[in-house]
């Protein structure tokens, strides 16, 4: 399948990229995500105001040159908090996405390739799907926050916990998708051919199956990224997750809601950042799916 179109002169990644660029929204989304990532990574080095510095005299300020996005009720700079907070939110998103992807792909792949494990693994997936997310998160955080805090310090401890918790509760969709795709692939001629040529399961998975299920995996990855950011903000919104003086987009939004009428900027900016990031990631997923669709070659 990888060499399905012998007439193509360009390499496959190149090809995919060319097609991805034709999807305008996805292309735009990619640039936006890049911009946000660069801003959150490098921004705090240029905009050196510390988001935890208090300045009571400058509380509840609207946008100004000194504070481009205004200040909060204790005079903390919202722009600085947005950049530092974005760093955490995006990190949580990427890490949780990566973990849940690995977990989901493994489970789905094993279930589809090794028949005897299919039943138990899929029932496990159903079990996880049936668990109510939020209460589970609350319990897990209550149980392990203290031990992780002492082991890794307050911020990284909670970071590890939040990332693990999100990925453990969000791998199931990926697992199901991967299993379905692989089951369908297994019946295709080229796989049968590979098997009859004596390919072992490892060779089969790495050389033939995995490359062909990459596109659904990428798509579910983008969805997972979006939902991880949202789950983190939900946790922060509930006052769980990170300490109260540690900004994330979700926490900024949560703190801002009370002051919505006084300083609307405090909900607009984090809300905008959250929704645009999630939206652009979704578009990227969309574009990737279209671009990687093998049938698009034969159009």
């Amino acid at each position: 399948m990888r060499k399905a179109s012998p007439l193509a002169h360009r390499s496959r990644p190149h090809h995919v990229w060319a097609r991805f660029r034709r999807h305008k929204m996805a292309y735009l989304g990619l640039w936006f995500l890049l911009l946000v990532t660069i801003l959150t990574l490098l921004g705090p080095m240029i905009w050196t105001l510390d988001p935890t510095t208090l300045d009571i005299a400058a509380k509840h300020q609207g946008p100004s040159l000194r504070h481009p996005m205004g200040t909060d009720q204790l005079g903390r700079d919202l722009f600085a908090a947005m950049m530092i907070g974005g760093r955490t939110s995006l990190m949580v998103g990427f890490m949780a996405m990566f973990l849940s992807l690995v977990l989901g792909t493994c489970v789905g792949m094993i279930a589809a390739v090794f028949k005897p494990l299919d039943g138990p693994l899929m029932r496990l997936t159903d079990l996880f799907l049936a668990l109510p997310m939020l209460p589970l998160l609350l319990v897990v955080i209550m149980l392990w926050r203290d031990s992780l805090r002492t082991a890794f310090g307050p911020e990284s401890g909670v970071f590890i916990l939040v990332v693990c918790v999100i990925s453990i509760t969000s791998w199931m969709q990926t697992a199901r998708i991967v299993r379905g795709e692989v089951l369908a692939l297994k019946e295709r001629e080229f796989i049968l051919a590979a098997i009859s040529l004596g390919a072992g399961p490892r060779h089969l998975i790495w050389q033939h199956i995995l490359p062909n299920v990459l596109s659904p995996i990428f798509v579910s990855a983008t969805l997972g990224f979006a939902s991880a950011i949202l789950t983190e903000s939900a946790l922060s919104f509930l006052g769980l997750g990170f300490p109260s003086d540690f900004p994330t987009w979700g926490r900024l939004l949560f703190d801002g809601t009370n002051y919505m009428t006084l300083t609307p900027a405090r909900v607009i900016w984090p809300g905008l950042a959250l929704s645009l990031t999630v939206l652009s990631v979704n578009y990227i997923g969309d574009g990737l799916r279209d671009a990687m669709d093998p049938r698009a070659d034969t159009q």
Binding site: T52, T53, L54, I56, Q73, L74, R76, G239, S244, D245, D255, N258
Partner: peptide
């Protein structure tokens, strides 16, 4: 968890 208490916490911490 209470907005006023978290403000107090932030001030005291500083």
């Amino acid at each position: 968890t209470n907005a006023v208490r978290q403000d107090t916490q932030a001030l005291v911490k500083s």
